[in-house]
Design a binder for these strands. Structure first.
Lengths: 339, 339
DNA sequence: TTGAAAGCGCTAACAG
DNA sequence: CTGTTAGCGCTTTCAA
């Protein structure tokens, strides 16, 4: 049925070793004549090698896996694009899965990837499989953690400076003259990103001369509707809030919805800065100021780092790359012109 | 180094055949006692099977591939989610790649997937590798075409009714009292979706009593900025246009941008309906009426169909599933209340 | 109820 | 310059 390297060898009247050599570019030692003959036969028989067999023999698949935790946020699409582009450039193929923020799923997928002998894994961790991450590290298995920091884990990380991102946002709001600045954040004790953004909010506020008592931190459940209701409730209780710093792009949309339902004007009555640049941010009314995270870069760098690690002769020290967020100023923060 | 089935067998004092049987659930014929012993050893040695070896032997990988053509549009994220969920449910893993709308990339990726022995492929085709698609079909290779129709190709398809989608939009606009209705579309002769949406526009307009001369079809190059400029130019030439039907979600954002630059009010001066429901549509100002395509469903159905095809004993006739679009009415079309 | 042996398609050490 | 040979880790017939 399917044509194998044996078929080619037989037809070309050589051994499969020779064919294999041609296939893999080791024809420094082969006659031009036999090479051409083999190439002809390959074309003629429409032969293509079985990479599964090759992988079994060579003990490497040239596949990496990526474990995402959320396929609903376009942010991840951009990360994925960076990873995919890098795989293409470096001759790897990509397996993808989605833990959906569930630790059990995450564990299962990681084990599956390993059984499939992927050469390494990029992972946005749920941060609830600490023993597993530690085991990967101590087994010296190639993997790179992205987006979220796993505390105490000695492994490659590619993250964005969330404290800095929050500070950019809060400083900008304060300098634009806003006194009462609130932060909205999803409730999730495991995830470093959100804690860090709140921390950045806190430090920037204090830095700007506010007292701890001035901090307005609103935690909401992740899930549809909850945020909009929370904003409405919050702003009714604290009608003098002048600015909101939103720590998530989806959350931002819900917050704006709540603000509009209250018939408040942005930015006149209340300013808002969102986290994560999106395709739609500039098209909102008013255009939304955002903290842009270099998502594509994160994808590229993590994949590159992983593949470098895979091909490293001797093991390296875990490296942490911290990417810089950037404030994209538009009208929603009320200071578009006067930064 | 790595523990294999042989190691387990040796340690448990049985043959690897027996271990293999346990692993694969064929222990109808095995003593409870030996089974437990083997299970213990497996746990003790932390053994996990090498799926590459298993795949080589069993001639199937339990992996499917998906070839996307664009990783920038969130629409595909939703499709991907459907595919991924289905893979999880059905015990498959997923490989992903992005042709980036380039036929050569598409061809290379498909061949790579085949060399990797993926059991089947879901593909959003560039529609410019006709010979390749035909060959896959005649080789009886399992694959499912999604989103775009490949003319003359006898293969499984999962598509959305684009003519219908356009008709929904245009009918709605006309019934809301708009006379001069224009359609905007990307220039790409290969892709059926866009041609069909224009066709739906045409048929709906004629159906509603307009003459062929009343049709206003504006083709624009796909690429940043081009659309916004095109809209501005177009509306300056035809200031009496009362409605625009946009055939793509990204395009819609650019069109709205152009309209706003001209200081026209939506929907008072000009109504707009966009294609594809998005997370941001309801948050635009005014909220955007869209033609919703069941993207998640497309992902689920195509993956299910593919896997069914993979496991079919005897070959089936190519099946085409046509999904129904749905109009989501919001304020931008100027008839939110009075449908 | 269990095991021996063959072999999936490929690579590479070694020999000629 | 080319071929022989021995596996990679697993499944599966066939025999015991």
């Amino acid at each position: 049925m399917k044509v194998t390297i044996d078929d080619v060898a037989r037809r070309a009247g050589v051994s499969k070793t020779t064919v294999s050599r041609i296939l893999n570019g080791n024809y420094g030692q082969t006659t031009e004549e036999t090479r051409n003959r083999i190439l002809d036969v390959i074309k003629e028989m429409d032969y293509s090698p079985n990479i599964v067999a090759k992988s079994l023999k060579s003990m490497r698949t040239n596949v990496i896996g990526i474990v995402l935790s959320n396929l609903k946020n376009p942010y991840w699409m951009t990360v994925l694009e960076g990873v995919e582009d890098t795989c293409r450039d470096l001759g790897y193929n990509l397996m993808i899965c989605n833990s959906d923020e569930q630790p059990e799923m995450e564990m299962q997928y990681i084990k599956e990837f390993q059984m499939r002998q992927v050469d390494g894994i990029v992972i946005n961790p749920t941060v609830r499989n600490m023993e597993l991450y530690a085991k990967l590290a101590s087994d010296n298995y190639p993997f790179v953690v992205i987006n979220r920091k796993v505390p105490g884990l000695s492994a490659h990380h590619v993250v964005v400076d969330n404290v800095k991102g929050a500070e950019l946002a809060v400083n900008h709001l304060v300098r634009a003259g806003r006194k009462k600045v609130a932060v909205f954040v999803y409730r999730n004790p495991h995830v470093s990103t959100w804690a860090e953004r709140v921390e950045g909010y806190r430090s920037a506020m204090l830095e700007n001369g506010f007292a701890p008592g001035d901090l307005l931190i609103c935690e909401v459940e992740q899930g549809t509707g909850a945020t909009t209701e929370a904003v409405i409730r919050f702003l009714r209780q604290q009608p003098d809030v002048e600015a909101i710093f939103s720590t998530n792009n989806m959350m931002t949309l819900d917050i704006i919805k709540g603000i509009k339902e209250l018939r408040l004007r942005i930015p006149d009555d209340i300013a808002i800065i969102g986290y994560d640049e999106t395709v739609w941010a500039q098209h909102l009314d008013p255009p939304l100021t955002t903290v842009m995270q270099p998502a594509y870069e994160m994808g590229r760098i993590s994949a590159k780092m992983l593949i470098k690690r895979i091909n490293a002769k001797r093991q390296q020290k875990p490296e942490t790359v911290v990417l810089e967020p950037q404030l994209i100023v538009r009208a929603s923060c009320g200071a578009a012109g006067r930064v």
